[in-house]
Design a protein around this nucleic acid. Structure first.
Lengths: 224, 224
DNA sequence: AAAATAATTTAGGATAAGCTAAATATTATT
DNA sequence: AATAATATTTAGCTTATCCTAAATTATTTT
């Protein structure tokens, strides 16, 4: 079934996005703590988010979730709402510093695209909210074509790297040293079900690269 | 048990208030039609509204409901939110006249008292919304609804449009395209008793406008 | 590598607000 | 006053999102 984006779902996606700054894979208990609900409730919800069409998260039992491109698109939309609202409440309506957050948290789920555009215009298309957080811009939403993550690929498949969703400098250096950058074409050599490691090769390079499950879930690719 | 004011409850109270303009006692089916839910659902909800502490409606089986003072207080609070929001969306954010209603319908349940006060202040404590409906004031006094509606006028009479009591976007656009807005002066050209249509003209415009009986009962005017 | 601890999932309920179908009350027509 | 037509209510289901308690899986300590 196609997803109806309830407030609760939007809250989950937003929190998952926020938590995935450190590690794109986010655990049940992290989400539970952030949303102030019980872990069992989180399990129920993320199973739903993964089952919906198109899936909003990828879910691995006892491990965690990662946003799909579609999930991230929705998360960014809500975050744009939130940060524009905070800015608007503070700048235009004169709300205090500490009051804007709670108000924006309720309004973000309810405003239309027209409302969003009009306050953006009134504010002169700001790039940062009053806390200094960046406001995703209107069309920074994900590319339209369907992408999968590396961990979904089978041995023998070929793909082109689309993007790497991670802030971790070390990881990014590790990848770039091996030529694993957006745009590059790769093929899957082998997969170890024991430790979930993926062996792959960059087109035109001799050596094989091993990637663990934590990383393969963060690299999005376009199938060939 | 003490009432938790959900969005649904607020919608019921608001609609009951609106419907009680004609008769303070409002029937199940009137509410069902206005809210676009089934009569059985209305019965369930109004039984709850009557059972809560303090009761929000008085309920008589097979007869209808009437708002209690507490129910009316809540209804007026929501209506104040709604009408302030409509005014704000139109005046401050530049929304079209006919687009404000849908947006306000969602926002009204979600804004804080602080938000309410700040937009009221920005607008200079307005007494009427862009449709001409009175905005209940901060201490929630009853607005006075004593005006005549268009359908009561005779051929040759002149009047000033006071307010249009309707949610239908298409209708509102239809009216605004013809310059039929609150504040505008009109005169009645003709009336057809066969189909109950009213022919009228906006002061300073050449063309005549035809309105059916469904509409003329919803446009309130002040006689000249 | 076994036991202890922690995290996660499953199973089974609770509540809010909607629905349909059947039962009952009210009102209108003959 | 009996019947027909309407309106309303009851009973029982559905979906969304939460909960608790018990079962399971993962991780850490010894």
């Amino acid at each position: 079934m196609r997803a109806t984006l309830t407030h609760a779902i939007e809250d989950y996606l937003k929190i998952i996005y926020d938590l995935s700054v450190i590690d794109a894979w986010v655990s049940t208990s992290q989400i539970a703590k952030a949303l102030e609900v019980k872990p069992a409730s989180v399990t129920g919800m993320i199973q739903k988010l993964a089952a919906v069409t198109p899936p909003l998260v990828e879910y691995r039992k006892h491990y965690g979730v990662i946003l799909t491109p579609e999930g991230e698109r929705v998360a960014l939309e809500i975050i744009r709402h939130h940060r524009l609202l905070e800015t608007f409440l503070h700048e235009t309506l004169g709300f205090d510093w500490d009051a804007v957050h709670a108000e924006a948290d309720r309004l973000e789920h309810v405003i239309s695209e027209e409302f969003e555009e009009r306050i953006a215009q009134v504010l002169g298309d700001p790039t940062h909210d009053p806390h200094g957080d960046p406001i995703p811009d209107r069309d920074l939403q994900m590319p339209v074509h369907a992408t999968t993550c590396l961990s979904e690929l089978r041995v023998g498949q070929q793909a082109r790297i689309e993007r790497v969703r991670n802030d971790n400098c070390e990881l990014l250096r590790y990848l770039s040293e091996r030529g694993l950058l957006p745009g590059v074409e790769i093929s899957i050599l082998d997969y170890s079900p024991f430790d979930d490691n993926l062996y792959l090769q960059v087109q035109g390079r001799p050596e094989s690269i091993v990637l663990g499950p934590r990383i393969t879930g963060q690299i999005f690719v376009e199938l060939k």
